Amino acid sequence: MAHNWDDLRLFLAVARERTLSSAGKLVRLDPATLGRRVARLEKQLDAVLFVKSPQGYALTEAGEQLFRRAEAADRAMRLAMAEVVPPSDMLTGQIRIGAPDGAANFLLPQICAGLAADHPGLDIQIVALPRVFNLSRREADMAIAVSAPEAGRLVVQKLSAYRLHLAAAESYLAGHPPIRSTDDLKSHRIVGYIADMIFDRELDYLADLGLTRVPLASNSVSVQGQIIRQGGGVGIVHDFALPFLPGVRPVLAHDIHLERAFYLIRHADDRGNQRLSQFADLLSAAIRRELRRLEAKA
């Protein structure tokens, strides 16, 4: 039986987002209208596709079967559209990037502004969240991560290593005892992550220094940077963020220096999507250039 592709597109959005409100934002429909469209599809199919639970809309067995088929159709359509390459290699359409907030705040704004200027028909969305993105649910077209995932049908590309140092504001250092060794840190106020909200082991910087108490904490690295800038204490700062934090300088730079890496993650089904691949290449090169530029200024 043939069905309206638009109804299947709406079904996919609800299945991936699990709530009408979140799915409605993606497809630009209010939740009530979206709910009616899903109910209409269920009536057409004579099947219950969702069961409402405390966590949102859960797929039934019939819903799971339709989800697999609709996803296959969605992939086929994405690939077909990708084969139509715009003239002069100009990118168009919408691309959503998921990123940890350090990259989203200090790297992606200027990079994406440049890409948008070069490709006027391109709509770039940056989703900054302190967690791992689920590309299988199409939360984003691609994501930047601080560690390479080991599971899932994903394509993983290492972008670049980056450096981090302990840092503090000149105003804080002027009013507190000197820091000559790591032992001195025990008498200073520490700024860092909220321990139970660290979503990736690579972000657990302070544990390696034996610093277990964090009097000033946030799940956002940009908030941590602003706390440090305001003289709140001492914390780990990305070298590429230092140019955005005037008055903040590295502390114990020769004794404490960390290195991490950014990875670009894409869904394996998008491997043949020329448009996304072209954008990924441009984004990767721009991130490497911007990291070099900012770290040279740190």
Results as ranks from 00 to 15, higher is better:
L45F: 09
L245M: 08
L291R: 13
V127H: 05
A47W: 09
I97A: 02
A168N: 05
S284G: 14
L185F: 10
A140K: 00
E202T: 13
G225A: 00
A70L: 11
I287D: 13
Y57R: 11
V27Y: 11
S53H: 11
F106G: 05
A241E: 15
G247R: 12
G56R: 10
A140G: 03
V237F: 05
Q55P: 06
L34M: 03
D6Y: 11
S218M: 04
A23N: 05
G152S: 02
A268P: 01
S277T: 13
A145F: 00
D281E: 14
F244E: 14
I198Y: 12
V237C: 07
Q44N: 11
A169V: 08
F67H: 15
I265C: 09
L276C: 12
H3E: 10
R137H: 09
L115N: 00
V155K: 02
L129M: 09
V251H: 11
I227G: 00
C112H: 00
T92V: 06
Y162I: 06
Q157Y: 02
L49D: 11
D183K: 13
L26Q: 14
A140Q: 00
Y263V: 01
L203N: 10
L154D: 00
P149H: 08
F199L: 01
D89K: 05
K186A: 15
P215R: 02
S171D: 09
N105S: 15
I198D: 11
A148W: 08
S222E: 06
R266V: 04
D255W: 03
A286C: 09
E61T: 12
P109V: 08
C112P: 00
A195N: 07
S181G: 13
G225M: 03
H119E: 00
A145Y: 03
P243Q: 11
V251F: 06
D269W: 13
L242F: 07
R229H: 02
L129D: 06
